[in-house]
Every structure is written in C-alpha cells, then in structure tokens.
Design a protein around this nucleic acid. Structure first.
Lengths: 169, 169
DNA sequence: TTGGAAAGTCAACAAGGCTGCCCTAAAATC
DNA sequence: GATTTTAGGGCAGCCTTGTTGACTTTCCAA
C-alpha cells in the first residue's frame, strides 16, 4: 500500500497513473464531482421540502416498480427506520403507494403514483442534464473509462446490484 | 432536455452514449461508487469517534498547509458553524493547529500536527488503496476518461479549485 | 400449533448540515 | 482619526438523515 510513492515505475509498463499523487487527484475529483452531481436535484428538492434521501428512494422505486422495502434497503444501504421515515412522508404526500404484498402479506410493494413519477422525472432530468453535458464534453471513449473505473470502485455487493440493473434497462 | 429519449442518433456520429438510459446508468454508477469511495475511511473514522466532515477537513488542510479558515470553507462548501464545530474538536484533540496569521492577524493558518498527519495518512491510505485497485483494474486509458468526465461534471468554481490544485501537486 | 424468522413500524438519540445574531480584532477606506 | 468591512469565534435552535432497540404482524416449518 506504500509501494507507489516514488516515481519510476517497475517493469516495462507505464504505471505513473498509480502514483499517490495521481490517486489523490482522483480522490479530489470524486469529491468535487459528486458535489456537482447532486447540486441540481438538491435545489429542486429543497424548494419542495424534500432531501436527498427522498430523491434516492424515488429513483430506485422508479427503477424497479413494485419492489419491496427490504430490497430498497439493500440498494440504499441505510437502516429501516431511515428509509421508513422518508417513505412515510412520500406515501402521505401521495407520491408513493405501498401495497400489501399479494403472496406475502408482510411485504409492501412500492409504486410511484403519477405525482411521484412527475417529481422523479423532474429530478432525473436535472441530474441527467449535467451528466449529458459532461458526457458530451468528454466524449464516448472517456465515458467508457469513467464507467469502468466507477464500477471497479464499488463494493462487490453493490457492484452486483449495479450490474443486475444494467441489463434490466 | 428530452431530445435523446428515442434511439437513432442524429447526424453521422454515434451518440448512443447520450441516451437517457445510458445517463441513468451513469447516475447509478456515481451513487454506488461514491458509497465504495467513502466506505473504508468511514470505518476508520467511526472507530475514532470522528465523521466524514473531519476527514474532509484533514484532507484539505494536509493538501494546503497553512491555509485559512475562509479558504477551507470555500473548498468544503459548508457554513462557518459547520466547519467550526469540526475544527474545534480537531484542535482540542491536538490534530490541527490554528496559528494566528503573521501578516493579517485576523486570519488563522491551519496546520496538521504530527498526530493529525498520522490520521490523515491512515485515512488517505485506505482511500487510495481502493482507488489504486480500481485504477489498476481499469487501466490508464480508462482512468484518463474517468478524470475527464468527473472534471466536466463539477461546478465551474469547484473546477477552478480542482485545477489549481492539480499543479500545486 | 407453536415458535422462530422475516417484514415493517415507531420512539428516541446523534451527527452534521443550516440560519441568525452577536461579539472581537484587524484591516481598509473615507 | 473615525467608520466600515472583513476574518473569525460562539451560541441558540432548527432540520435531515443516519443510528439502535423494542414492538407488531405475518409466514413457515418442526
């Protein structure tokens, strides 16, 4: 873990992109980019009295309509109560519908109402707008690399979730 | 903003990487990757009773020793009180030293003590470890694309900060 | 049929954002 | 030299969103 501190790379390959300095740049890039990534939806959410947690819930319910609370928990990586509070306000406000499971009545299947769909779309469009601009500016090859690195950075469990959604399109 | 919903791209170029579906994948990739990105430092921090806010402060003080509180505020994008709370505990715990400015005595110049350097290094090494693994798995070309897209995603002000640090290396 | 596991709800607490107001000291400006 | 602006600290109090732990309801299997 401290092998890449000095410059000249071993072997015949160019490993300069693995220096600690390069890695620190990558860390800062992630930090600043994530701020930008969330900035636009945050503004919309604030105006409506919601937070990032609501956005995340809407996103994943939209992504996989009818899914259960437990499944959502696994994707979001938060505790039940954290999600529950957010979910309750969304249900109260008529953005999300929680139907009792048909087979297993312990389960709640989550759906977006038309109003929920509308807000999800608004948030998503704002976020996609920035993403699209970044993608366009960087070009398709850069985008492929971007996706590759992000994927490699995920925890294995999350990577599986991510990849399973990849094809569910 | 709703022009890329349908498949066939205009013009002669392949713009399939700009479909809403691709953009949504990118959004999810950011979300899951950021979780991985913070996971390792978070574990260390929790064991020591600190949070992500402390990590961010340590990182940027290390990055630019002797910088002022105001400068740090601009980088972190939080309010004075938010930062002050964090900074106070770090000073009390002997991780950060706040020296009165030489020229302008209103300013406080922030430095890491040896203990502060040690914790910063521990956190940074954990985070770099994951970053290094991801970089290695994806390869130098992907890393270049990764950095390009992230940079394009930042708010202009933050991008300037980011780029100014690029060379200060 | 009963006892454990799973799904979900709720209460209570903590971290870390935020605002607003007030204060000191120093610098800059008039 | 007096006034205004700037850098920073401190405090009260708010909100969101994380946490744990106790509690139903439901299901399933021994």
């Amino acid at each position: 873990m401290a092998r890449t501190t000095v410059a000249p790379p071993p072997g015949g390959e160019n490993l300069l992109f693995l220096t600690d300095e390069q890695l620190r740049k990558g860390i800062e890039a992630m930090f600043f980019a994530y701020r930008g990534f969330t900035a636009d939806p945050d503004r919309i959410l604030e105006a409506k009295g919601y937070g990032r947690a609501h956005h995340r819930a809407l996103h994943f319910i939209h992504r996989d309509q009818g899914q259960t609370v437990t499944n959502l928990l696994a994707m979001l990586g938060v505790t039940k109560q954290s999600l529950n509070r957010v979910l309750r306000t969304l249900v109260e406000d008529g953005l999300v519908e929680a139907r009792v499971g048909r087979r297993d009545k312990r389960e709640r299947n989550l759906y977006l109402t038309p109003e929920g769909e509308a807000l999800e779309r608004e948030l998503s469009e704002a976020q996609r707008g920035r993403m699209r601009a970044a993608y366009r500016a960087a070009g398709p090859a850069a985008v492929a690399g971007f996706r590759q690195v992000l994927e490699a950075m995920m925890d294995p469990d999350l990577r599986r979730y991510y990849q399973s959604m990849k094809d569910a399109g």
